[in-house]
């Protein structure tokens, strides 16, 4: 008996230094064990993984297309400008003076005055109607001030107010916010982005439920094993661990499957989009998934898997006796 106690003391004394190492190697073992369990029933596992993959591929793909669309429209962001058409009787000096007065205002970054003659030259160059103008005895084009507002596209109300104010100024015939359609498109993109977020949240919930349900069935199937392990002194954490790793694996593989699906969709869409872009004289092409996007997908799918498993485990393990 004394000999036994001494042995026990000795082995306890050597434990602490090894404790962390033993803990980590236990985690590694449980992770491998859970992976093995997944692979033992490949069809059933694949079905869960496919559900997760499809559920994540949808918001993932939407988000990716949205990012592409935003990248295209980004280049238009600078071009927000207001064209002010002056009355015909305004001289070049007066036009310059108005332009510089406007430039002093806080909401205007800069102004550029285009004189009547400059406007005529520009029109002749770009419109192709130069010959028609030659037939006229006087220059019908007014002087124009191009004003760059110090407002972002999101401040559309202020932009419109500014345009209205300009229109009521003397000497200004017409004020046109050139890039109103850009603002509208941005607004549409915002709406779509919001919708994608809602759909994504719903689908994430679906992933939680899919993983949770799979883990629940797993717990029920291994009930006897859980009871035995508890009877030989396993803590709740020890019992929980293989199921949590199971959820993590489901999530991770689901993430990979989602990436596969999105890449496949991008490949299929590449041809049609190129044709469309050619018709619009555009160099636009779809980007492939960026590394950060891949990382976000994999990490979030793994976390969803883990969380789903956690929900199932905390709910169902408590029901298994002995506690």
């Amino acid at each position: 008996m004394r000999q036994q106690r001494q042995n026990r003391r000795k082995s306890r004394a050597q434990q602490p230094s090894n404790r962390l190492h033993a803990y980590l190697s236990h985690h590694r073992e449980v992770a491998t064990f859970s992976l093995g369990k997944l692979l033992q029933a490949p069809v059933a596992s694949f079905m869960t993984i496919a559900v997760i993959g499809i559920a994540l591929a949808l918001p993932g793909a939407f988000y990716h297309f949205l990012k592409n669309a935003q990248a295209v429209s980004q280049s238009w962001d600078d071009s927000a400008q207001i064209s002010l058409y002056l009355s015909q009787d305004i001289s070049d000096e007066q036009g310059q003076a108005i332009a510089s007065a406007l430039a002093d205002r806080a909401e205007i970054i800069s102004t550029r005055y285009i004189s009547q003659s400059e406007a005529l030259t520009e029109f002749k160059q770009h419109s192709g109607f130069g010959g028609v103008l030659d037939a006229l005895s006087t220059n019908p084009l007014p002087g124009v001030i191009i004003a760059k507002p110090n407002l972002s596209r999101h401040q559309s109300t202020q932009l419109i107010n500014l345009v209205n104010e300009f229109e009521h100024m003397p000497n200004i015939e017409l004020a046109v916010f050139d890039t109103q359609w850009v603002a509208r498109m941005y607004a549409i993109l915002d709406v779509i982005q919001f919708a994608v977020m809602i759909v994504a949240s719903l689908l994430c919930l679906a992933v939680l439920l899919a993983v949770g349900n799979t883990i629940r069935l797993d717990i029920l199937a291994r009930k006897e094993e859980i009871i035995v392990i508890k009877l030989i002194g396993a803590s709740d954490a020890f019992v929980r661990r293989p199921f949590l790793y199971g959820g993590l694996w489901y999530g991770l593989f689901g993430g990979f499957f989602a990436i596969l699906l999105i890449s496949l969709a991008l490949m299929l869409l590449e041809g049609p989009i190129e044709t469309l872009a050619t018709l619009y004289n555009s160099q636009f092409s779809l980007h492939t998934l960026s590394p950060s996007m891949l990382l976000v997908l994999l990490v979030s799918s793994s976390l969803l898997g883990l969380l789903g498993a956690w929900l199932a485990v905390s709910r169902h393990l408590a029901q298994i006796k002995p506690r």
């Binding site: 082995s11 050597q14 434990q15 090894n18 404790r19 190492h21 033993a22 803990y23 190697s25 236990h26 073992e29 006897e224 094993e225 009871i227 035995v228 392990i229 009877l231 030989i232 002194g233 396993a234 803590s235 020890f238």
Partner: peptide, 30 residues
């Protein structure tokens, strides 16, 4: 010790016997 053994049939004899030590957090060599 249980009447119906209560062994786990998804793993080897070694892993069955080693289970209490894994639960107790021993190092693998031990």
């Amino acid at each position: 010790v249980f009447q119906n053994h209560q062994l786990l049939y998804d793993r080897s004899v070694f892993d069955n016997v080693a289970l209490p030590l894994k639960i107790a957090g021993y190092h693998f060599s031990e």
